[in-house]
Write a protein that binds this DNA or RNA. Structure first.
Lengths: 336, 336
DNA sequence: CTGTTAGCGCGTTCAA
DNA sequence: TTGAACGCGCTAACAG
């Protein structure tokens, strides 16, 4: 009696039944007299009544929650600005539509991933993956065990319960490469992580498209885990064996900036001596010197879009369209 | 009958009652014969039974969820790396302890903040605030309306249901200032956002402590919303009127890096001509040239700590200690 | 060791 | 226009 007031408490206070109160709360106004209605609303306010969601959910057989999963190797699973923007966009959308967002990071290789996943009870799941293709596929299959719509960011998977949201990586990569070719570059190095993400493959393919047409060369440098150190080591080694290219095309801004630092330490001017481009521009990139040429994907918007498709998927119990490719804008910095 | 199997379904399949199955699931092994137990576990596995959390919660009068609120002016509420690390730490801790983390961003000034808050139903709430002191206090009072333990990051508030988790900003600021004094700097400018956060005040106070003792001067430059542009504008104006100091002490890494860029554009060498320091180092700072001297707060650990205190708070229905100050480590970059 | 009963808070269904 | 009964899935408290 001393906890949160229930529907019954409100009803008692008004001398009506719980049902009547419920009708008022759910906007079934025509079922209730305007006079009674007023009295009830006042009582609700006075008592500070708030509906119990657990009860509602149990009754409705619906959680009104969306799960956001981030598969990552490290515990700090929100390090990537692309990820955080997606999460923010989805979270806001969910909140605005009466859903709560349950955020969970999962270590890609951990065996505890399975029980953790089982603990998730939501009407739909959105996931951002990382790790090897094998790890990712395994994860997807497990996530499908939840039997709810699954939206994958930057990852394809053919299944009626799965919807992919991707950005036009190939097109963006083409734009970057064309920009460089226009400025006279002919010999390119592509900075890629050793793990072969689909998105990275697309970006390489886009650069290759342009190189083929323009008769340029493209060498892929594998930068391990794309960390600062790994990238610099890989680039240094490449310079040792094959010399300097006209431009480095970064698979992302991190690798690009690590490369810029390396070149600067060697007294090379960027972009005068060598050009360097990035990918997935985020705020912080503008703090780097010199500014990067980069593609900016609107990750926040992608998160919102995930919300939109998710609600459709939940309503329909599956997806009508299950692959969307979103545009990417091209951003030329001031001095690159 | 075609949805998820329930406890009853499992019981029926084994020819026992739901209660017995429940006993098995909750580890009350002594209540159940080992033979029956085995049979039940098999049936659970065969049917792919998973407990319904909504029912559990309703029964237990406990949500087993923690709310993470981020009050921000912009929709992209996960832009700040400090915030994301706290969220990641708390999320992991919650997951490991059988709680789910519900993430919600709130626009500081929006009137919809109130209903949004009401939609949150969790056993406890952790919040990172921003905006004016007035906005923040208003928010705290509303959050207290939820009548659950509230943990505030970098924010004090005297109330039995509130616990503050702060870092030792003053101590860290002292360490930075001493570092600069040791290297001969005497005239300082402090880069602060125009909004007066408690944390910023502490940092200024720490610098002032050192300046007082060493007989140095300290001027505070208000950098508006601490954006790249606002910071550069404020610094430029300060240089115009008061000339160049020996060192800029950044209220955070963003402002510090904006300042470095400005100085470099004016052909000033950092740190040879002017020193610049940052605050709250995060990964990306290492990509900036030159490396920053900065204080690194372990925000991830702070998130985990929030989880620890939250669980205590939930169990006790309030906090025993309600102000914790966590240490901050000092990080000297390679070339600053 | 196992079964029965009852109720968490809400909403649908049917009756008044 | 309002009321009563029932059940969503689970578990505490007792019986047997």
């Amino acid at each position: 009696m001393n906890g949160q007031p229930t529907l019954k408490d409100v009803a008692r206070a008004c001398g009506v039944t719980a049902m009547t109160v419920s009708n008022v709360l759910n906007g079934r106004d025509k079922e209730v007299g305007p006079e009674t209605r007023k009295r009830i609303l006042k009582a609700i306010d006075d008592l500070g009544y708030r509906p119990n969601f657990a009860a509602k959910r149990l009754r409705a057989q619906k959680t009104s929650a969306i799960g956001m999963l981030v598969l990552d190797d490290v515990p700090e699973f929100l390090n990537d600005p692309f990820t955080t923007q997606v999460v923010a966009g989805l979270s806001n959308f969910a909140t605005e539509h009466g859903y709560s967002l349950i955020l969970q990071g999962l270590r890609s290789e951990s065996p505890s991933t399975v029980p953790m996943l089982g603990h998730l009870q939501t009407d739909g799941v959105c996931a951002i993956l990382s790790g090897s293709p094998d790890t990712r596929r395994k994860f997807i299959k497990r996530a499908l065990g939840l039997r709810v719509p699954l939206i994958l960011i930057q990852e394809e998977f053919d299944h009626p319960l799965v919807c992919s949201l991707r950005q036009d990586d190939r097109g963006a990569a083409r734009a970057i490469a064309e920009y460089l070719v226009d400025r006279g570059a002919r010999r390119f190095c592509y900075l890629a992580p050793s793990a072969h993400w689909p998105a990275i493959s697309e970006r390489i393919a886009g650069s290759q498209d342009v190189c083929n047409k323009a008769g340029c060369s493209l060498t892929v440098i594998e930068c391990g885990d794309e960390s600062f150190e790994a990238t610099q080591k890989a680039v240094a080694s490449s310079i040792g064996t094959e010399g300097l290219p006209d431009a480095y095309i970064g698979g992302n801004d991190r690798m690009a900036m690590a490369t810029i630092r390396l070149l600067q330490d060697r007294q090379l001017a960027v972009p005068e001596d060598v050009r360097v481009t990035g990918f997935n521009a985020f705020d912080f990139a503008s703090f780097a010197a010199p500014s990067l040429v980069t593609a900016r994907s609107d990750a926040y918007e992608m998160g919102r879009r995930a919300g939109i498709e998710m609600l459709k998927g939940i309503e329909l119990g599956g997806f009508e369209h299950n692959d969307f490719v979103l545009p990417v804008s091209f951003v030329a910095g001031q001095s690159a």
